[in-house]
Design a protein around this nucleic acid. Sequence first.
DNA 1: CGCGAGATTGATTCTACTCAACACTAGTGG
DNA 2: CCACTAGTGTTGAGTAGAATCAATCTCGCG
Lengths: 218, 218
Amino acid sequence: MAVATQPTFEAFGAKLTKFGAHDVVYYEGDEAKRLYQLASGTIMLFKLLPDGRRQVVEILRPGDIFGLSAGEEQDCTAETLTEATVREVDLKQVEASVDLQRQLTKCLTNQMNILHEHAVLLGRKSAVERVASFLMYLVPNRGGGVGCVGPDPSKSDDGCDLQLHMTRQEIADYLGLTIETVSRVVSDLKRRGVIRIDRSDKIHLNRICGLCQMTGIH
Amino acid sequence: MAVATQPTFEAFGAKLTKFGAHDVVYYEGDEAKRLYQLASGTIMLFKLLPDGRRQVVEILRPGDIFGLSAGEEQDCTAETLTEATVREVDLKQVEASVDLQRQLTKCLTNQMNILHEHAVLLGRKSAVERVASFLMYLVPNRGGGVGCVGPDPSKSDDGCDLQLHMTRQEIADYLGLTIETVSRVVSDLKRRGVIRIDRSDKIHLNRICGLCQMTGIH
DNA sequence: CGCGAGATTGATTCTACTCAACACTAGTGG
DNA sequence: CCACTAGTGTTGAGTAGAATCAATCTCGCG
């Protein structure tokens, strides 16, 4: 039930770097020689097709690691969504330490599971289910990302303010949709009273459980 | 250029298990307490939505590891596509060894990159591009999975026999399509002379480069 | 030979995309 | 203070691509 707390890469000569919002940490194709861990803020990883189509493949949270690649090059571009601080560790450092390795494995496994879930979203879910899943993903303390607390609206399970930190375009590119479809679905959720839109990137969930019912996982 | 060779988990008390074709190694929800490495054969990992929609999230090859989960439970079902042998290692074993950890990281990183690529396919590619990408993925010694050797058909870059080991349904569930769409696209590729179908799961690529041009990555 | 699972093909429907117009917001400068 | 602008978001109309529904085919096997 308890969400696994992400380990953090302490000391070990880790260099802390600050980034502004919408800064690029590295580009797809850059040399991959360091390990990064997000210390604070939000970062997205995305890939581009030559004709400009973009897919956001991961949305990183504090504790998540990135920058590793099977080859010599980065397979994604890493761009901040908000101000962010990033720990950098040299790969050699990591390889030498059992402890760092263990933490690394934990992080990678966690992110892998999220990628699996996201593949289901991209491959099998409708537009509404995608947007609902995305919003649920942003709710703090969901039951480990798996589902909602249950269809038991005791009292506190309702209402939640979300700060998206993403444009409609970024959301669309994450969900494999177009900007217009995202906008339509969001408007529709508003019309149905499931959410309230305070500002375009500030959304209030009126009924979390109701939203969770729309994710396709029930 | 050289494809990174997958490390294999030697000895370390690894138990070898044999599976027949279409055997289930574990189900989604099973307790996750062991690490598995595919020694030979092919295995797919998939997730199910409650209404029966299925998404194949990974197709594993010898050297790939699986069975790790961020939580206590498996997040996917693992089912063999062919006869397969699997190494099992206790998690404690792995945690104790720097060497195993290092190999593990390498495997996970590699699979992560493939998952990223697959997210692009599911989120942004057309049906034709998906099928073309899938077939290219099955070609041995592609340039590390990234692309084709180049538009230089010197002589040997053409012709390649593929054994799919998958039904149309399994392919469809991997590509986020329906069985009918996969069938139509395959028929279309045949009609256009790009491939030849020897048996429904045995396909000959006539022009690899031509096919690669249809993957969307050029 | 007949059966059944898997694959193919056709006709139709529907979801999300495309194209296009318009609205909202914040920032700029007269 | 208020146009003006640029970037972002919303909404509408029409379309295209894949899904759905349904019929037929293929092939291996008892």
